[in-house]
């Protein structure tokens, strides 16, 4: 519905009833349109007001907590928000959140892109349909189920991988393993990777499916192999879509709560090795501490939640910048 016709000059009254009907159907002054306009404008404004109210409330509570914080809010490794005086900092949480999500992305994005390419460009149609269906099922599993599966099945089975990493990459320090239970940020990253795989795969699949046939044929006619067709036309065309898909997955990984809380054995430490238990994420920390928090403690958790929000915003902004940078080369104007 084109609201701009609202201000269009009303044509002179016409004698013929057919013209009269036409004017009415243009909808310039019909009451229904005015009601619709009012409703849509009203709900738009209401949404903004609610958002502003939430943001204002959270910022206010966070500011209260930070003003009472005896430690440096950004750099301290301590979390004693219930104590007197309260001392808390988000350094450990920021590190744990970012690292576990980065691990998840590094694992999930290539696999997802590979699966999506397989479904759209390699697999026979029926096999592709079956794979898509299974992946849709994965997306429907609740995160607490992933958490339980992670704690009961994944953790005990990762010892082999941990040992292997320690043997071959232990010298870097990053993959040094002391031999404890695999309840580390690395395991969290693997679990998050499995959890975001469906969304990244599904969005990438839809993007690749729309890859323009005529550009793929251009590559084929030049004598490109199937993989070269993908490299020359499908991937460049799908690039911004894959970035968007990854951002959706990253958003989920950054905010994932129950699965992380179930698998990680948390601590306010930053370990040199990713395989050592300990660390924490914003969402996991809020979930595990909110119940027994004092009023100041709650405000401190709210403050940490705001930081997560800012990180998510920054990540999204960066993604948009990457997409915009090569816009004139995007497949959109093909």
């Amino acid at each position: 519905m084109d609201i701009s016709t609202q201000d269009a000059p009303v044509p002179p009254p016409a004698p013929a009833p057919s013209l009269e009907q036409k004017r009415a159907s243009r909808g310039a002054t019909r009451p229904g349109d005015r009601v619709f306009l009012g409703l849509s404008r009203g709900s738009g404004i209401l949404l903004l007001v609610i958002m502003a109210a939430i943001a204002g409330f959270l910022t206010y509570r966070a500011a209260l907590a930070i003003s009472e914080d005896e430690a440096n809010f950004l750099t301290s490794f301590e979390w004693d928000a219930n104590g007197t005086p309260p001392k808390f900092g988000i350094a450990v949480l920021a590190y744990g959140t970012v690292i576990s999500s980065v691990i998840a992305m590094v694992i999930a994005v290539p696999i997802s892109v590979g699966i999506a390419l397989f479904i759209t460009h390699y697999a026979p149609r029926r096999l592709g349909g079956v794979i898509s269906y299974v992946i849709d099922l994965l997306a429907a599993v609740p995160s607490i189920v992933y958490g339980l599966w992670g704690a009961l099945v994944l953790v005990p089975h990762l010892n082999g991988l941990y040992g292997w990493l320690d043997d071959y990459l232990g010298w870097t320090g990053v993959f040094e393993w002391q031999g404890g239970a695999a309840r580390s940020l690395f395991t969290v990253g693997i679990l998050l990777a499995i959890m975001i795989l469906p969304i990244v795969t599904n969005v990438s699949r839809e993007v690749f499916r729309q890859s323009p046939q005529m550009i793929e044929e251009a590559a084929l006619a030049l004598g490109a192999t199937r993989w070269e067709v993908i490299r020359m036309s499908v991937l460049p065309f799908g690039r911004s879509g894959v970035i968007s898909a990854s951002m959706l997955g990253l958003g989920r990984a950054l905010g994932e709560t129950m699965a992380v809380a179930t698998v990680l054995s948390p601590s306010f430490l930053i370990n040199a090795s990713l395989l050592d238990p300990g660390g924490g994420t914003f969402a996991q920390n809020i979930a595990s501490k909110f119940g027994e928090a004092t009023p100041v403690g709650r405000d401190a958790l709210i403050a940490s939640g705001l930081v997560l929000f800012v990180i998510t915003l920054l990540v999204n902004g960066a993604a948009r910048a990457i997409i915009a940078r090569r816009k004139e080369y995007s497949g959109a104007n093909a």
């Binding site: 323009p212 005529m214 550009i215 044929e217 251009a218 590559a219 084929l220 006619a221 030049l222 004598g223 490109a224 192999t225 020359m232 036309s233 460049p236 065309f237 690039r239 080369y329 995007s330 497949g331 104007n333 093909a334």
Partner: peptide
């Protein structure tokens, strides 16, 4: 068939340069 297509070139009904490539890279693609 890939080798066949390398020796027999084709121009299509609708122009289809690679949109993500520069003019130079389009010509150099083959």
């Amino acid at each position: 068939p890939v080798a066949v297509r390398r020796t027999i070139g084709m121009v299509f009904q609708r122009p289809n340069p690679f949109p993500t490539m520069s003019i130079f890279d389009n010509v150099a693609a083959g």
